[in-house]
Design a protein around this nucleic acid. Structure first.
Lengths: 210, 210, 210, 210
DNA sequence: TATGAATGAGTCTTCATTCAT
DNA sequence: GATGAATGAAGACTCATTCAT
């Protein structure tokens, strides 16, 4: 009956509840998989009623969207820190990879949402500036490193960047999705992995053909 | 008036309909993701009624199971062919990677089930000998190649195999999960990716340290 | 396209199949209960296809109807045999009760249909002269026995007949509906039951009051 | 998006709706038989939607279970009252029978569920302490009376108790299932029935043989 | 006569969402 | 902000029945 005042709630002291919902949802998504978590599950875990969710989020998907967005923000910050540390391109490449893998290991839920979950409605339902900016930002940093190493920035560099991203992502994804696989000691594996990636890049720079 | 009791036919004249259903389901799974495909969807796409599916499959999950099984069989066969082709270890490594990526691209849903899904229902509901045998078989082949290159088979070789698997998986997973990303031309990317992986390995073999 | 010749099949050499179906259905009804037997179950047990049933019966319910009709016929015949066996009224009473209980035990589904179901569809879908005739015939025989014992036929005799019918029915109904109850040995229970019923009747005849 | 996990509420303000559903279901079960009543039927009769039932009952069978449980509770209370009234064994037998028949006549629906309906899933799905306790309790009281009359408690007494239960049940069941039968005046019939049962028992006690 | 294939109606159940309070 | 109650749409699955062959 009111309808006045536009539609600005979504904030206020209730921001706490919103955060609580987000945190709970993130935990549930990680535990049971996004597809098996329902609004009822979330509401019950938070300790509120199902309809109450709609006081904080317009739709159920919005919860995932918000988590997705935040995940990208965190990752962006880590990248920024890494890139601020000046050093040789090769070292920056390793540092970037370490930051990426650390993020994936520390925040597997966010990593999952950001890079592993398909059908990320958060990438479709809106501009999603943060995600795009982060992705492109990080990717841009990678491209910059490669360009610096190669002395030029062309389609070949883009391909190399994509390949390297894929390699790093591969380890992150498998560590998350297959935790029971008999992996060798993790830190050693990471260092070996990043080292081989760097070596592969350098070899390719030295001898483009083959 | 219920109480099923097992069912006789499960076989039309040569099971043409069954194959048609499987093919359609595979296409729909690839298009919309397994979780978003229902029996209704499949039936409509095949041009039959929902209950008719149950003349060919006892349960809805059986469709996915059958596809899963076939997918692993295909992967296994591809690996076998690749490994039969005698050549240098480096070439076999590339061929193995190509077979792996081809499989992922041709059968994204099967690849998803096999390596990307975290709660792979098809790995729980049954013995799933084929999946296990395939996975371990492929990994064993990779280790054998590395051992051949290094002249020894130790924990370091295991780590390298894990790293390489991760790199190849990474590209497969991203191509599947992020099809809208502005990838460079696919075949070139694959060749570059596998080449860099091989180069990284060779570089590491030549100069273990760093 | 034919439509000629009226609609008289239902007989001929195929009567054998029809009998086979009826026998199988009766067995299945007894085994799993009418509510859990489907046309598929029957067809499979007979070894024919589901649609073939419809060559012998217009509808699935017709199978039950036919069995119902036959059941009453059988019951009527048993009663007739029992009553032909001349003997003392007390012995005829016991014999009648035995025939009744034997029928209930041999053909629980028919007994169910006849006396336990409250919404007996087979009593609605047609005149069902046989059922009525049988029921009244048996009850009449019971009244006749009592009248013979008492030397008169009045309302008191009617009440006694109703009471005795109820007692016999009670055992039949419980044996059918509660097969898992820890009954004592069945034949002994039946003999005791009928004996007590007869004794109760005789005691009442000897000393009407109390 | 599935995976139930237990449910909180199950209780409206005093559970009025729940009671309404139970009452309606009880009526429908009585009218059409449990097997022919579906969730749709119940929901429509209550005036709510099908899914709403699941806010009050976890599963469709739970409705029948609850009714079953309540019926037994009522019966148990009546028995307890009767057995508290001390008197001769013969009088207690009559009183027990009257209580049993009164219950059947007053609450035909509950009696139906408790003793007449077959396939009582309520007896399978769960411990069903109440039902068991009631049944065994009443039956134990009957056995105690018989043991008192006979001066001993053996298998013969068990058989007599079963026979008497069957006789009483028989009248209850027929009065409920065949209300249109031309019964004699009800109270007179009941007294005659119980009297003959008692007489039959006493006769048997006096002259065990025959 | 018989059948393989198919189907509309109906079963129970769960989902995200809304509305009056 | 929050909630109890309710719902339309959809999920998988089974039924008796029909039709072209």
């Amino acid at each position: 009956m009111a309808e006045a005042m536009g539609d600005t709630p979504r904030r206020g002291r209730g921001g706490e509840r919103r955060e609580e919902i987000l945190a709970t949802a993130l935990r549930l998504f990680a535990q049971h998989g996004m597809a098996h978590v329902t609004t009822r599950t979330i509401a019950r875990a938070v300790g509120i009623s199902q309809p109450s969710l709609y006081a904080h989020f317009r739709t159920a998907a919005e919860i995932g969207d918000e988590l997705c967005r935040r995940g990208f923000e965190v990752l962006q910050q880590r990248f920024a820190e890494v890139l601020r540390g000046g050093s040789t391109p090769g070292e920056r490449l390793l540092a970037l990879g370490r930051a990426y893998l650390d993020f994936a290991i520390d925040q597997p839920d966010l990593y999952r949402i950001a890079f592993m979950l398909e059908d990320p409605e958060c990438l479709e339902s809106g501009p999603d500036d943060v995600a795009m900016a982060t992705g492109l930002g990080a990717f841009g940093a990678l491209r910059a490193i490669i360009a610096e190493l190669r002395g030029t920035d062309d389609a070949e560099g883009e391909a190399m960047a994509q390949s390297i991203w894929a390699s790093v992502h591969g380890l992150a994804a498998l560590l998350i999705a297959r935790p029971l696989f008999p992996w060798v000691e993790r830190q050693a594996l990471i260092e070996l992995h990043l080292g081989m990636i760097r070596d592969g890049l350098l070899a390719r720079l030295a001898r483009p053909a083959t």
